[in-house]
Lab assay of single mutants.
Amino acid sequence: MSGNGNAAATAEENSPKMRVIRVGTRKSQLARIQTDSVVATLKASYPGLQFEIIAMSTTGDKILDTALSKIGEKSLFTKELEHALEKNEVDLVVHSLKDLPTVLPPGFTIGAICKRENPHDAVVFHPKFVGKTLETLPEKSVVGTSSLRRAAQLQRKFPHLEFRSIRGNLNTRLRKLDEQQEFSAIILATAGLQRMGWHNRVGQILHPEECMYAVGQGALGVEVRAKDQDILDLVGVLHDPETLLRCIAERAFLRHLEGGCSVPVAVHTAMKDGQLYLTGGVWSLDGSDSIQETMQATIHVPAQHEDGPEDDPQLVGITARNIPRGPQLAAQNLGISLANLLLSKGAKNILDVARQLNDAH
């Protein structure tokens, strides 16, 4: 009898209710805020589980004197976190989706994509230029951005401005803007500013005609071990179906173009009346040469937790077992079709030249 009692006690200790789920994140304040929001949602869904947040620095956090596009290494903000995932030191990792490459290392998958916040870019102005827009900034004003995508589009749109690289986390960039006289304004992701509670610093939100956004911008991705079915089931509740389908289309477009950090590629997606609209573009580094096109596809946005595919093969690095396969494939095909259209119009040449120029500098 006593033996059975011990077995029952052991089973209770090993039951999922007692389990601590370890969540990996970057150390920056924004990353911690984003991770806290994901953990809060998981806690609400699984009140019996405990969650421990483990923060670590990544290569991208450490190399702050070089433009991201020049470092010449993929997975700048993800490699150390993936290493911890691989060694079973954490069970899942919360990322900004735009930091996750469209091809993940073997053994990993994006197990959830959370509801997207505003994906557009924002302009934050130096205190002396508050009330201005990019259009009304004085001639030769210097605007800071760490992104080739932003610089290429904005140089084309605002030729009277000069664009220079600015690195560091959000706090560091804002301090550089406010305390030094080098920059009249800087460009940042609206979602990051909003998550930090800095709505009052948003001086201008850039519309798609001015600057399309990065693939996955404004959404959070939760990376897990691809074979860890328990954790895949656990994080599945975080999937937002519309965000998922938009981001599958965007990531398929980028992957098929073979774009990345070192080339200016941008997108804009919208879901309306059962249609998914995808606009994508590529630019030369100075913005003088560009190709942009829009395509659409009829896609039914499923309700969360309709029964999805059981075999769960990944699409552009994403596993969404609780979302039907048909809409996911339709979104992926839309991204591939748009990429093929741009490639047929000469996108590869623009991107190759951009890559060579970026590598040469």
Rank of each mutant, 00 (worst) to 15 (best):
I187P: 02
S69I: 11
F163D: 04
Q180P: 08
D311T: 06
I318Y: 11
Q292M: 13
S37F: 11
H207C: 11
Y277M: 12
C261M: 01
S141I: 05
I63K: 05
G72P: 14
N171W: 14
A55E: 15
V202K: 07
R167C: 05
G107Y: 01
R201L: 13
I186T: 14
R321I: 10
D121P: 03
H300K: 14
P302C: 12
F253W: 04
I54R: 08
L334T: 00
L232G: 13
E73I: 07
R246S: 13
L68H: 05
R325A: 09
D230P: 11
A152L: 12
L85T: 06
N88L: 12
Y213K: 02
L238W: 03
R150E: 02
W283F: 02
E135P: 11
V282H: 05
E86G: 08
I248W: 05
F129N: 01
D91H: 04
R149A: 02
S147A: 00
G197T: 03
P313I: 15
C114W: 08
D230T: 00
G111E: 03
R246T: 08
S45E: 10
L315N: 04
C261P: 00
T279C: 03
S165G: 13
R201W: 09
C114S: 12
E80Y: 02
H239M: 05
I205C: 13
L154V: 10
T298M: 09
S184R: 15
N358G: 04
G287H: 05
L134K: 01
Q328G: 09
M271S: 11
L341Y: 07
Q180L: 11
V103A: 07
S165W: 05
K345Y: 14
E182V: 15
G281M: 01
V143H: 03
T145E: 00
P309Y: 02
E210A: 07
L238H: 00
L49H: 10
L92S: 05
I336T: 03
D352I: 02
H199F: 15
F108Q: 15
G197H: 03
A55V: 12
T66W: 09
T172M: 05
V301K: 01
G144D: 04
D121V: 02
T145Q: 04
I166P: 00
D289P: 15
G111H: 00
G281C: 07
T172C: 08
Q275C: 03
G60K: 01
A252T: 14
V202P: 15
H239Y: 07
L49I: 06
F125D: 02
A122P: 03
R167I: 09
L161P: 01
S69H: 12
A122T: 10
P159S: 10
E242K: 10
A122Y: 04
F158V: 07
T190R: 07
S344D: 15
G308R: 07
Q332R: 12
E242N: 02
Q332S: 15
L232I: 14
T294R: 10
G60Q: 07
R149H: 06
G346Q: 00
I53E: 08
V237G: 05
L64E: 00
R175E: 06
T145N: 04
Q181E: 14
L342G: 06
K98P: 03
L276C: 11
L232F: 11
V301I: 13
L276R: 02
M271C: 07
L193W: 00
A347G: 01
E210M: 02
L193E: 02
T172Q: 02
V235M: 12
T59A: 10
L97F: 10
V235T: 02
V90M: 09
G131H: 13
V267K: 07
I350P: 00
K98D: 00
V93S: 03
G317L: 03
A219K: 00
N171H: 10
P208S: 10
Q229K: 08
G317I: 09
Q275V: 13
